[in-house]
Design a binder for these strands. Structure first.
Length: 470
RNA sequence: GGCGGCAUAGCCAAGUGGUAAGGCAGCGGUCUGCAAAACCGUUAUUCCCCGGUUCGAAUCCGGGUGCCGCCUCCA
Protein backbone atom coordinates (compact mmCIF):
# COMPACT_ATOMS: atom_id res chain seq x y z
CA UNK A 1 0.00 0.00 0.00
CA UNK A 2 1.21 3.43 -0.83
CA UNK A 3 2.21 5.96 1.73
CA UNK A 4 -0.38 8.72 1.83
CA UNK A 5 -0.20 12.10 3.50
CA UNK A 6 -2.81 14.79 3.98
CA UNK A 7 -2.07 17.76 1.76
CA UNK A 8 -3.38 21.07 3.10
CA UNK A 9 -3.22 22.44 -0.42
CA UNK A 10 -5.77 19.99 -1.79
CA UNK A 11 -7.58 19.13 1.41
CA UNK A 12 -7.19 15.40 0.99
CA UNK A 13 -4.83 12.55 1.53
CA UNK A 14 -2.50 11.93 -1.39
CA UNK A 15 0.07 9.27 -2.21
CA UNK A 16 3.59 10.52 -1.76
CA UNK A 17 5.10 10.70 -5.23
CA UNK A 18 8.57 12.21 -4.89
CA UNK A 19 9.99 14.61 -7.45
CA UNK A 20 12.96 12.28 -7.70
CA UNK A 21 12.17 8.62 -7.25
CA UNK A 22 13.45 7.30 -3.95
CA UNK A 23 14.29 10.70 -2.53
CA UNK A 24 12.25 13.02 -0.36
CA UNK A 25 13.03 16.67 0.23
CA UNK A 26 11.40 17.95 3.42
CA UNK A 27 11.41 21.53 4.62
CA UNK A 28 9.98 22.32 8.05
CA UNK A 29 9.62 25.80 9.50
CA UNK A 30 11.63 26.00 12.67
CA UNK A 31 11.44 28.45 15.56
CA UNK A 32 12.11 32.14 15.86
CA UNK A 33 14.88 32.07 18.40
CA UNK A 34 14.07 34.76 20.94
CA UNK A 35 12.89 32.57 23.81
CA UNK A 36 12.90 29.00 25.08
CA UNK A 37 10.71 26.58 23.19
CA UNK A 38 7.46 25.25 24.54
CA UNK A 39 5.60 21.98 24.17
CA UNK A 40 4.00 23.17 20.95
CA UNK A 41 7.42 23.46 19.35
CA UNK A 42 8.23 20.03 20.70
CA UNK A 43 5.21 18.55 18.99
CA UNK A 44 6.11 19.93 15.59
CA UNK A 45 9.68 18.68 15.90
CA UNK A 46 8.66 15.23 17.15
CA UNK A 47 6.02 14.75 14.47
CA UNK A 48 8.38 15.57 11.65
CA UNK A 49 11.17 13.58 13.24
CA UNK A 50 8.93 10.52 13.25
CA UNK A 51 7.98 11.24 9.65
CA UNK A 52 11.65 11.28 8.69
CA UNK A 53 12.30 8.06 10.61
CA UNK A 54 9.37 6.36 8.94
CA UNK A 55 10.26 7.54 5.45
CA UNK A 56 13.84 6.43 5.96
CA UNK A 57 12.66 3.08 7.23
CA UNK A 58 10.52 2.85 4.10
CA UNK A 59 13.61 3.20 1.98
CA UNK A 60 13.48 6.84 1.00
CA UNK A 61 16.58 8.93 1.08
CA UNK A 62 15.35 11.95 2.99
CA UNK A 63 16.87 15.40 3.00
CA UNK A 64 15.46 17.18 6.00
CA UNK A 65 15.81 20.94 6.34
CA UNK A 66 14.61 22.94 9.33
CA UNK A 67 15.45 26.60 9.61
CA UNK A 68 16.09 29.04 12.41
CA UNK A 69 14.58 32.51 12.08
CA UNK A 70 17.31 34.55 13.65
CA UNK A 71 16.39 38.03 12.47
CA UNK A 72 12.96 39.39 13.24
CA UNK A 73 11.12 42.14 15.15
CA UNK A 74 10.70 40.04 18.26
CA UNK A 75 14.36 39.18 18.38
CA UNK A 76 15.30 42.84 18.04
CA UNK A 77 12.86 43.84 20.72
CA UNK A 78 13.98 41.16 23.16
CA UNK A 79 17.65 41.92 22.53
CA UNK A 80 17.02 45.58 23.25
CA UNK A 81 15.23 44.73 26.47
CA UNK A 82 18.12 42.55 27.53
CA UNK A 83 20.72 45.03 26.41
CA UNK A 84 22.48 42.46 24.27
CA UNK A 85 22.91 42.10 20.55
CA UNK A 86 20.58 40.06 18.40
CA UNK A 87 23.21 37.59 17.43
CA UNK A 88 24.05 36.69 21.01
CA UNK A 89 20.39 36.31 21.87
CA UNK A 90 19.68 34.14 18.84
CA UNK A 91 22.75 32.00 19.41
CA UNK A 92 21.76 31.29 22.99
CA UNK A 93 18.28 30.20 22.00
CA UNK A 94 19.51 28.06 19.16
CA UNK A 95 21.56 26.20 21.74
CA UNK A 96 18.57 25.97 24.03
CA UNK A 97 16.48 24.59 21.18
CA UNK A 98 19.12 22.03 20.30
CA UNK A 99 19.37 21.02 23.92
CA UNK A 100 15.62 20.45 24.15
CA UNK A 101 15.35 18.65 20.83
CA UNK A 102 18.30 16.39 21.51
CA UNK A 103 16.83 15.50 24.87
CA UNK A 104 13.53 14.65 23.24
CA UNK A 105 15.38 12.24 21.01
CA UNK A 106 14.89 14.12 17.77
CA UNK A 107 17.53 13.52 15.17
CA UNK A 108 19.15 16.67 13.87
CA UNK A 109 17.94 17.68 10.42
CA UNK A 110 20.45 17.43 7.59
CA UNK A 111 20.49 21.20 7.29
CA UNK A 112 19.60 23.84 9.82
CA UNK A 113 20.00 27.07 7.90
CA UNK A 114 19.67 30.45 9.57
CA UNK A 115 17.88 33.30 7.88
CA UNK A 116 20.87 35.60 8.28
CA UNK A 117 22.99 33.21 6.21
CA UNK A 118 20.65 33.56 3.23
CA UNK A 119 20.20 37.31 2.94
CA UNK A 120 21.76 37.35 -0.51
CA UNK A 121 19.30 34.82 -1.84
CA UNK A 122 16.42 36.72 -0.33
CA UNK A 123 17.61 40.00 -1.83
CA UNK A 124 17.88 38.24 -5.17
CA UNK A 125 14.27 37.02 -4.92
CA UNK A 126 12.93 40.37 -3.71
CA UNK A 127 14.67 42.19 -6.49
CA UNK A 128 13.12 39.84 -9.01
CA UNK A 129 9.69 40.50 -7.53
CA UNK A 130 10.23 44.26 -7.70
CA UNK A 131 11.38 43.88 -11.29
CA UNK A 132 8.30 41.98 -12.42
CA UNK A 133 5.93 44.27 -10.59
CA UNK A 134 4.70 41.91 -7.90
CA UNK A 135 6.47 43.90 -5.20
CA UNK A 136 6.68 47.63 -4.65
CA UNK A 137 8.80 49.90 -2.48
CA UNK A 138 7.23 52.28 0.02
CA UNK A 139 9.69 54.60 1.68
CA UNK A 140 12.48 52.21 2.68
CA UNK A 141 10.33 49.11 2.84
CA UNK A 142 9.30 46.68 0.14
CA UNK A 143 5.85 45.13 0.05
CA UNK A 144 4.40 42.22 -1.81
CA UNK A 145 1.25 42.95 -3.79
CA UNK A 146 -1.21 40.17 -2.90
CA UNK A 147 -3.46 40.97 -5.84
CA UNK A 148 -0.79 39.79 -8.25
CA UNK A 149 -0.81 36.01 -7.86
CA UNK A 150 -3.79 34.49 -9.54
CA UNK A 151 -4.99 32.54 -6.56
CA UNK A 152 -3.92 34.27 -3.40
CA UNK A 153 -5.45 32.29 -0.53
CA UNK A 154 -5.51 28.90 -2.16
CA UNK A 155 -3.62 27.16 0.62
CA UNK A 156 -5.74 28.48 3.46
CA UNK A 157 -8.95 28.39 1.46
CA UNK A 158 -9.86 32.03 1.71
CA UNK A 159 -10.14 34.97 -0.62
CA UNK A 160 -9.23 38.60 -0.21
CA UNK A 161 -12.84 39.81 -0.20
CA UNK A 162 -13.85 37.71 2.78
CA UNK A 163 -10.94 38.51 5.02
CA UNK A 164 -11.29 41.05 7.74
CA UNK A 165 -8.76 43.78 7.25
CA UNK A 166 -7.41 45.14 10.47
CA UNK A 167 -8.95 42.41 12.58
CA UNK A 168 -5.91 42.25 14.76
CA UNK A 169 -3.47 44.82 13.51
CA UNK A 170 -3.80 48.45 12.47
CA UNK A 171 -4.02 48.82 8.74
CA UNK A 172 -0.94 50.43 7.29
CA UNK A 173 -2.29 53.07 4.93
CA UNK A 174 0.83 53.09 2.85
CA UNK A 175 0.08 49.62 1.51
CA UNK A 176 -2.03 49.08 -1.58
CA UNK A 177 -3.95 46.26 0.07
CA UNK A 178 -4.12 45.73 3.82
CA UNK A 179 -2.97 42.17 3.20
CA UNK A 180 0.20 43.14 1.40
CA UNK A 181 3.14 41.93 3.46
CA UNK A 182 6.63 43.21 4.02
CA UNK A 183 9.41 41.57 2.06
CA UNK A 184 11.97 44.00 3.33
CA UNK A 185 12.07 46.42 6.23
CA UNK A 186 14.28 49.46 6.46
CA UNK A 187 16.46 49.26 9.53
CA UNK A 188 16.50 51.82 12.27
CA UNK A 189 19.90 52.81 13.63
CA UNK A 190 21.40 50.02 15.67
CA UNK A 191 19.28 47.30 14.12
CA UNK A 192 20.72 44.52 12.01
CA UNK A 193 21.05 45.77 8.43
CA UNK A 194 22.20 44.45 5.09
CA UNK A 195 22.83 46.47 1.93
CA UNK A 196 20.49 46.20 -1.04
CA UNK A 197 20.65 46.98 -4.75
CA UNK A 198 17.71 49.32 -4.28
CA UNK A 199 19.80 51.36 -1.91
CA UNK A 200 18.06 50.98 1.42
CA UNK A 201 19.87 48.91 4.02
CA UNK A 202 17.51 46.80 6.06
CA UNK A 203 16.43 43.32 6.95
CA UNK A 204 14.14 40.76 5.36
CA UNK A 205 10.53 40.18 6.33
CA UNK A 206 9.63 36.78 7.65
CA UNK A 207 7.97 35.24 4.63
CA UNK A 208 10.85 35.25 2.18
CA UNK A 209 13.43 33.27 4.08
CA UNK A 210 11.82 29.84 3.75
CA UNK A 211 11.40 30.37 0.03
CA UNK A 212 15.05 31.26 -0.42
CA UNK A 213 16.43 28.60 1.90
CA UNK A 214 14.30 25.75 0.59
CA UNK A 215 15.21 26.78 -2.94
CA UNK A 216 18.93 26.83 -2.25
CA UNK A 217 18.99 23.58 -0.28
CA UNK A 218 16.31 21.44 -1.91
CA UNK A 219 15.80 23.01 -5.31
CA UNK A 220 12.73 24.87 -6.51
CA UNK A 221 10.39 21.90 -6.74
CA UNK A 222 10.55 19.71 -3.66
CA UNK A 223 8.30 17.25 -1.91
CA UNK A 224 7.03 18.31 1.48
CA UNK A 225 6.80 21.60 3.29
CA UNK A 226 5.69 21.35 6.91
CA UNK A 227 5.04 23.30 10.04
CA UNK A 228 2.49 24.05 12.70
CA UNK A 229 -1.08 24.70 11.74
CA UNK A 230 -0.77 28.35 12.66
CA UNK A 231 1.63 28.80 9.77
CA UNK A 232 -0.94 28.02 7.11
CA UNK A 233 -1.98 31.63 7.06
CA UNK A 234 -0.28 33.93 6.50
CA UNK A 235 3.21 32.43 6.46
CA UNK A 236 2.84 29.54 4.07
CA UNK A 237 0.22 31.32 2.02
CA UNK A 238 2.68 34.13 1.51
CA UNK A 239 5.49 31.78 0.61
CA UNK A 240 3.32 30.27 -2.09
CA UNK A 241 2.33 33.72 -3.34
CA UNK A 242 5.98 34.64 -3.75
CA UNK A 243 6.83 31.41 -5.54
CA UNK A 244 3.88 32.08 -7.86
CA UNK A 245 5.08 35.63 -8.43
CA UNK A 246 8.51 34.35 -9.33
CA UNK A 247 7.07 31.69 -11.61
CA UNK A 248 8.90 29.13 -9.55
CA UNK A 249 7.63 25.65 -8.78
CA UNK A 250 7.51 24.99 -5.08
CA UNK A 251 6.58 22.41 -2.46
CA UNK A 252 4.06 19.84 -3.67
CA UNK A 253 2.65 18.68 -0.40
CA UNK A 254 1.93 20.81 2.65
CA UNK A 255 1.69 19.21 6.06
CA UNK A 256 0.53 20.97 9.21
CA UNK A 257 0.54 19.59 12.71
CA UNK A 258 -2.23 20.46 15.15
CA UNK A 259 -1.83 22.46 18.32
CA UNK A 260 -0.99 21.48 21.81
CA UNK A 261 -3.79 22.76 24.01
CA UNK A 262 -4.14 23.56 27.66
CA UNK A 263 -7.65 23.41 29.11
CA UNK A 264 -9.11 23.25 25.63
CA UNK A 265 -7.25 26.32 24.45
CA UNK A 266 -4.27 26.64 22.18
CA UNK A 267 -1.01 26.84 24.06
CA UNK A 268 0.39 30.21 23.17
CA UNK A 269 2.56 32.95 24.45
CA UNK A 270 -0.18 35.55 24.32
CA UNK A 271 -2.51 33.49 26.53
CA UNK A 272 0.36 32.81 28.87
CA UNK A 273 -0.68 29.17 29.15
CA UNK A 274 2.47 27.69 27.73
CA UNK A 275 4.90 25.29 29.34
CA UNK A 276 8.46 25.36 28.15
CA UNK A 277 10.07 22.07 27.29
CA UNK A 278 12.66 22.58 29.99
CA UNK A 279 9.93 23.12 32.59
CA UNK A 280 8.21 19.90 31.68
CA UNK A 281 11.52 18.08 31.54
CA UNK A 282 12.00 18.84 35.22
CA UNK A 283 9.04 16.62 36.06
CA UNK A 284 8.88 14.12 33.23
CA UNK A 285 11.40 12.11 31.29
CA UNK A 286 11.71 13.31 27.68
CA UNK A 287 10.58 9.94 26.38
CA UNK A 288 7.34 10.37 28.29
CA UNK A 289 6.84 13.75 26.61
CA UNK A 290 7.57 12.15 23.29
CA UNK A 291 5.12 9.32 23.81
CA UNK A 292 2.47 11.79 24.93
CA UNK A 293 2.92 13.87 21.80
CA UNK A 294 2.49 10.80 19.62
CA UNK A 295 -0.64 9.45 21.29
CA UNK A 296 -2.75 11.35 18.85
CA UNK A 297 -2.62 11.56 15.08
CA UNK A 298 -0.61 14.68 14.25
CA UNK A 299 -3.35 16.74 12.62
CA UNK A 300 -5.65 16.94 15.61
CA UNK A 301 -5.13 18.95 18.77
CA UNK A 302 -3.59 17.28 21.78
CA UNK A 303 -4.47 18.36 25.30
CA UNK A 304 -1.56 18.91 27.62
CA UNK A 305 -1.92 18.07 31.30
CA UNK A 306 0.16 16.48 34.03
CA UNK A 307 -2.42 13.71 34.28
CA UNK A 308 -1.96 12.88 30.62
CA UNK A 309 1.82 12.82 31.00
CA UNK A 310 1.49 10.59 34.05
CA UNK A 311 -0.74 8.11 32.20
CA UNK A 312 1.78 7.92 29.43
CA UNK A 313 4.61 7.46 31.87
CA UNK A 314 2.86 4.36 33.18
CA UNK A 315 2.49 3.03 29.67
CA UNK A 316 6.16 3.56 28.95
CA UNK A 317 7.11 1.98 32.28
CA UNK A 318 5.15 -1.06 31.30
CA UNK A 319 6.91 -1.43 27.97
CA UNK A 320 10.33 -0.89 29.51
CA UNK A 321 9.62 -3.36 32.27
CA UNK A 322 8.81 -6.04 29.73
CA UNK A 323 11.95 -5.32 27.77
CA UNK A 324 14.05 -5.44 30.89
CA UNK A 325 12.62 -8.78 31.90
CA UNK A 326 13.02 -10.09 28.38
CA UNK A 327 16.69 -9.12 28.48
CA UNK A 328 17.24 -11.86 31.06
CA UNK A 329 16.70 -14.33 28.25
CA UNK A 330 19.29 -12.75 26.02
CA UNK A 331 19.60 -9.66 23.86
CA UNK A 332 16.74 -8.68 21.54
CA UNK A 333 16.86 -10.67 18.32
CA UNK A 334 15.75 -9.78 14.82
CA UNK A 335 11.97 -9.92 14.66
CA UNK A 336 10.90 -13.32 13.40
CA UNK A 337 8.14 -14.42 11.00
CA UNK A 338 5.70 -14.54 13.89
CA UNK A 339 5.73 -10.76 14.12
CA UNK A 340 5.59 -10.10 10.39
CA UNK A 341 1.86 -9.57 10.22
CA UNK A 342 1.75 -7.10 13.10
CA UNK A 343 4.75 -5.32 11.64
CA UNK A 344 2.86 -4.82 8.39
CA UNK A 345 -0.16 -3.49 10.26
CA UNK A 346 2.10 -1.17 12.20
CA UNK A 347 3.74 0.16 9.05
CA UNK A 348 0.38 0.53 7.34
CA UNK A 349 -0.84 2.74 10.19
CA UNK A 350 2.12 5.05 9.69
CA UNK A 351 1.69 4.90 5.93
CA UNK A 352 -1.81 6.26 6.45
CA UNK A 353 -0.98 9.89 7.11
CA UNK A 354 1.37 9.03 9.96
CA UNK A 355 -1.24 7.59 12.28
CA UNK A 356 1.01 7.30 15.30
CA UNK A 357 -1.94 6.74 17.65
CA UNK A 358 -2.96 3.63 15.80
CA UNK A 359 0.61 2.41 15.42
CA UNK A 360 1.12 2.87 19.14
CA UNK A 361 -1.83 0.60 19.77
CA UNK A 362 -0.05 -2.12 17.82
CA UNK A 363 3.10 -1.58 19.82
CA UNK A 364 1.20 -2.22 23.03
CA UNK A 365 -0.35 -5.33 21.55
CA UNK A 366 3.17 -6.59 21.08
CA UNK A 367 4.03 -5.69 24.66
CA UNK A 368 1.14 -7.80 25.86
CA UNK A 369 2.29 -10.71 23.74
CA UNK A 370 5.79 -10.41 25.14
CA UNK A 371 4.42 -10.35 28.69
CA UNK A 372 2.42 -13.47 27.92
CA UNK A 373 5.62 -15.23 26.90
CA UNK A 374 7.37 -13.93 30.00
CA UNK A 375 4.57 -15.31 32.16
CA UNK A 376 4.98 -18.70 30.52
CA UNK A 377 8.70 -18.49 31.12
CA UNK A 378 8.08 -17.86 34.81
CA UNK A 379 5.96 -20.95 35.04
CA UNK A 380 8.90 -22.92 33.74
CA UNK A 381 8.51 -23.03 29.99
CA UNK A 382 10.86 -20.35 28.68
CA UNK A 383 10.87 -19.91 24.93
CA UNK A 384 13.98 -17.81 24.67
CA UNK A 385 13.88 -17.39 20.93
CA UNK A 386 10.36 -16.06 20.86
CA UNK A 387 10.99 -13.77 23.80
CA UNK A 388 14.06 -12.31 22.16
CA UNK A 389 12.29 -12.00 18.84
CA UNK A 390 9.30 -10.14 20.31
CA UNK A 391 11.62 -7.92 22.32
CA UNK A 392 13.49 -7.11 19.12
CA UNK A 393 10.21 -6.36 17.43
CA UNK A 394 9.15 -3.94 20.13
CA UNK A 395 12.52 -2.25 19.93
CA UNK A 396 12.14 -1.93 16.17
CA UNK A 397 8.78 -0.23 16.57
CA UNK A 398 10.20 1.95 19.32
CA UNK A 399 12.98 3.00 16.99
CA UNK A 400 10.48 4.39 14.50
CA UNK A 401 8.98 6.48 17.27
CA UNK A 402 12.35 7.32 18.75
CA UNK A 403 11.87 5.78 22.16
CA UNK A 404 12.29 2.53 24.08
CA UNK A 405 15.97 2.76 23.24
CA UNK A 406 17.35 3.31 26.72
CA UNK A 407 18.97 0.60 28.79
CA UNK A 408 18.65 2.32 32.15
CA UNK A 409 14.94 3.06 32.36
CA UNK A 410 13.54 2.88 35.88
CA UNK A 411 16.84 3.54 37.57
CA UNK A 412 16.96 6.96 36.03
CA UNK A 413 15.51 10.20 37.24
CA UNK A 414 14.76 11.45 40.71
CA UNK A 415 17.72 9.50 41.97
CA UNK A 416 19.31 12.63 43.32
CA UNK A 417 16.71 13.13 46.01
CA UNK A 418 15.52 10.32 48.23
CA UNK A 419 17.41 7.21 49.14
CA UNK A 420 20.57 6.19 47.40
CA UNK A 421 20.61 2.92 45.52
CA UNK A 422 22.96 1.50 48.17
CA UNK A 423 20.55 2.40 50.96
CA UNK A 424 17.65 0.82 49.09
CA UNK A 425 19.53 -2.37 48.49
CA UNK A 426 20.65 -2.54 52.07
CA UNK A 427 17.03 -2.35 53.22
CA UNK A 428 16.06 -5.00 50.73
CA UNK A 429 18.71 -7.27 52.20
CA UNK A 430 17.32 -6.71 55.70
CA UNK A 431 13.82 -7.37 54.47
CA UNK A 432 14.76 -10.57 52.73
CA UNK A 433 16.40 -11.80 55.92
CA UNK A 434 13.11 -11.12 57.70
CA UNK A 435 11.23 -12.90 54.96
CA UNK A 436 13.59 -15.83 55.23
CA UNK A 437 12.54 -16.25 58.86
CA UNK A 438 8.91 -15.60 57.98
CA UNK A 439 8.91 -12.38 59.93
CA UNK A 440 6.25 -10.85 57.70
CA UNK A 441 5.57 -7.90 59.97
CA UNK A 442 9.15 -6.71 59.74
CA UNK A 443 9.26 -7.43 56.00
CA UNK A 444 6.14 -5.38 55.41
CA UNK A 445 7.41 -2.60 57.64
CA UNK A 446 10.53 -2.23 55.51
CA UNK A 447 8.54 -2.41 52.29
CA UNK A 448 6.20 0.31 53.50
CA UNK A 449 9.10 2.44 54.60
CA UNK A 450 10.61 2.21 51.13
CA UNK A 451 7.26 2.91 49.56
CA UNK A 452 6.96 6.10 51.54
CA UNK A 453 10.32 7.06 50.02
CA UNK A 454 8.97 6.43 46.54
CA UNK A 455 10.57 3.04 46.07
CA UNK A 456 8.39 0.12 45.06
CA UNK A 457 9.55 -3.46 45.50
CA UNK A 458 8.70 -6.43 43.38
CA UNK A 459 9.39 -9.93 44.64
CA UNK A 460 9.96 -12.40 41.87
CA UNK A 461 11.32 -15.88 42.01
CA UNK A 462 14.33 -15.69 44.26
CA UNK A 463 14.95 -12.03 43.63
CA UNK A 464 13.64 -8.65 44.71
CA UNK A 465 13.75 -5.82 42.22
CA UNK A 466 12.92 -2.21 42.91
CA UNK A 467 12.03 0.94 41.08
CA UNK A 468 11.32 4.50 41.89
CA UNK A 469 7.89 5.98 41.32
CA UNK A 470 6.88 9.60 41.27
C1' G B 1 -18.89 38.28 8.74
C1' G B 2 -15.60 34.49 5.93
C1' C B 3 -12.90 29.81 6.07
C1' G B 4 -11.64 25.25 8.52
C1' G B 5 -11.51 21.41 12.33
C1' C B 6 -13.53 18.42 16.21
C1' A B 7 -17.64 15.70 19.14
C1' U B 8 -16.39 7.53 20.35
C1' A B 9 -16.59 4.30 27.72
C1' G B 10 -14.70 7.53 34.18
C1' C B 11 -10.22 9.93 31.35
C1' C B 12 -7.03 9.72 26.72
C1' A B 13 -7.60 7.71 21.82
C1' A B 14 -7.94 4.44 16.94
C1' G B 15 -11.73 3.14 13.71
C1' U B 16 -14.65 6.71 7.25
C1' G B 17 -20.37 1.20 4.93
C1' G B 18 -20.30 -4.87 7.65
C1' U B 19 -21.31 -5.08 13.26
C1' A B 20 -16.58 -0.77 18.58
C1' A B 21 -7.96 -1.20 18.39
C1' G B 22 -4.81 0.43 22.20
C1' G B 23 -3.34 3.23 26.89
C1' C B 24 -4.78 5.01 31.95
C1' A B 25 -8.34 4.09 35.82
C1' G B 26 -12.14 0.30 37.88
C1' C B 27 -14.08 -4.67 38.91
C1' G B 28 -13.52 -10.35 39.16
C1' G B 29 -9.82 -14.29 38.74
C1' U B 30 -4.62 -16.57 38.39
C1' C B 31 0.16 -15.87 40.65
C1' U B 32 2.12 -14.13 45.67
C1' G B 33 3.26 -15.07 52.88
C1' C B 34 0.71 -10.44 51.78
C1' A B 35 1.77 -7.08 48.04
C1' A B 36 3.73 -5.22 43.42
C1' A B 37 4.23 -6.48 38.38
C1' A B 38 2.19 -9.53 34.68
C1' C B 39 -1.56 -12.49 32.47
C1' C B 40 -6.89 -14.02 31.76
C1' G B 41 -11.85 -12.19 31.98
C1' U B 42 -14.86 -7.87 32.48
C1' U B 43 -16.25 -2.51 31.88
C1' A B 44 -19.67 1.85 25.38
C1' U B 45 -26.32 -3.11 22.76
C1' U B 46 -23.41 1.72 21.18
C1' C B 47 -20.26 6.18 18.92
C1' C B 48 -23.46 14.76 20.76
C1' C B 49 -29.00 15.24 19.11
C1' C B 50 -32.99 14.72 15.19
C1' G B 51 -34.26 13.03 10.45
C1' G B 52 -32.80 10.43 5.71
C1' U B 53 -30.15 6.79 2.23
C1' U B 54 -28.93 1.42 2.69
C1' C B 55 -30.00 -5.51 3.60
C1' G B 56 -26.64 -3.04 6.93
C1' A B 57 -23.92 3.56 9.33
C1' A B 58 -19.85 5.63 14.61
C1' U B 59 -18.70 5.68 9.43
C1' C B 60 -22.67 8.51 3.71
C1' C B 61 -26.54 12.77 3.13
C1' G B 62 -29.67 16.88 5.40
C1' G B 63 -30.78 19.79 9.76
C1' G B 64 -29.51 21.08 14.81
C1' U B 65 -26.34 21.71 19.40
C1' G B 66 -21.60 22.29 21.72
C1' C B 67 -16.28 23.16 21.67
C1' C B 68 -11.88 24.84 19.14
C1' G B 69 -8.67 27.18 15.44
C1' C B 70 -7.33 30.86 11.50
C1' C B 71 -8.66 35.78 9.07
C1' U B 72 -0.86 39.89 9.00
C1' C B 73 3.11 37.45 16.87
C1' C B 74 2.70 32.21 16.90
C1' A B 75 4.92 25.10 16.03
Amino acid sequence: MALVLYNTLTGRKEPLVPVQAGRVGLYVCGPTVYDHSHIGHARAAVVFDVLVRHLTRRGYQVTYVRNFTDVDDKIIQRANENGEDCRTLAERHIQSYHDDMDALGNQRPDFEPRATEYIESMVRDIQAMIANGSAYPVDGDVYFDVTRPRQYGRLSGRNLEDMRAGARVEVDERKRSPFDFALWKESKPGEPAWPTPWGVPGRPGWHTECLAMSHDLLGAAFDIHGGGHDLVFPHHENEIAQADALGRPFARLWMHNGFVRVNQEKMSKSLGNFFTIRQVREKFHPEVIRLFLLTKQYRGPVDFSEEALLDNKKGLDKAYRSLREAAEFGPPADPGPETAELWETFQAALDDDLNTAKALGHLFEAVRELNRLLDEARSGKPDKDRIRSWAGFIRAMGAVFGFLEREDWGDVAEAEDGLSAEAVEDLIRQRNEARGSKNWAEADRIRNELKSQGVVLEDTAGKTTWRRVT
